[in-house]
Design a protein around this nucleic acid. Sequence first.
DNA 1: TGAATTGTTATCGT
DNA 2: AACGATAACAATTC
Length: 276
Amino acid sequence: MPELPEVETTVRRFRPLLEGRRIIAFRTRWQRHAVPSAPAVRRGVVGRTVARVSRRGKYIVLALDDGAHLLIHLRMSGRLEWAADHEKEPAHVRTLWEFDGGQRLLFSDARKFGRVVYTRDLAATTAGLGIEPLAREFTADAFDTLLRRRTRQLKPLLLDQSVVAGLGNIYVDEALFRARLHPLTRSDHLSAAQTASLHEHIRALLREAIRHHGTTFDWVYPSGGMQTRLRVYGRTGQPCPVCHTPIEYLRVGQRGTHICPRCQPANGAPRPKRGR
DNA sequence: TGAATTGTTATCGT
DNA sequence: AACGATAACAATTC
């Protein structure tokens, strides 16, 4: 479940390995990985040099030396590995690139949900993505406007990549907890102070997670350190670090959701009647 | 064995 | 028509 911090960590790891290297072969063993098609991706990338590695939302973006781009989305179970050609392959390698010098970029993806997208028009391909939460343009005012002109529940709204690009289930739960907001609260029902708080917590949380190289939960994404700093995600039944109330698990828009019922009271919900 | 997992997209309703 | 809510889907793990 790589989200923005895990993707950013991956980008930082692979930037020095890939930049300036020439791709001499592209192969995929799972045709659906390649968009628009495996032959199209191969024609586009073979012979090209990787000019620059960056990130947009949860996409890893390889800028090629001819102005085209290759986007890699890890989805649920994708991870990248770097291997010299004599090393044995990790499991579930679906797609790989060979570079001059005999080294390879391996795209391992147990669930096969990942994507490798070749495009000559990066702007058009990423047009559907929302604002970058760590960019300068993501100001408290911009976020306030964005929340206020929608009428959706906070959690599904924050998970929507066309609104804010890069947040996933883990960091949405954590950001809402830190801002003391219930995930079902309608986005247009927040006060200016609440939107400002959520804005600040999202940015601080993502920066903290990047600093700790992301969150590691299973075999998918190793070597992160953020999992010990999460306060609600994956902690169902354990005491809230703030008030010691047991963390509750609920479903919001088909997503597993973790909250502290005391720190994150339902906003606008009818208060339980006091006896007598 | 089937429930759980998640981001994206298709579909339906308002 | 545009938006919001919901379902379906990809495939594997435990």
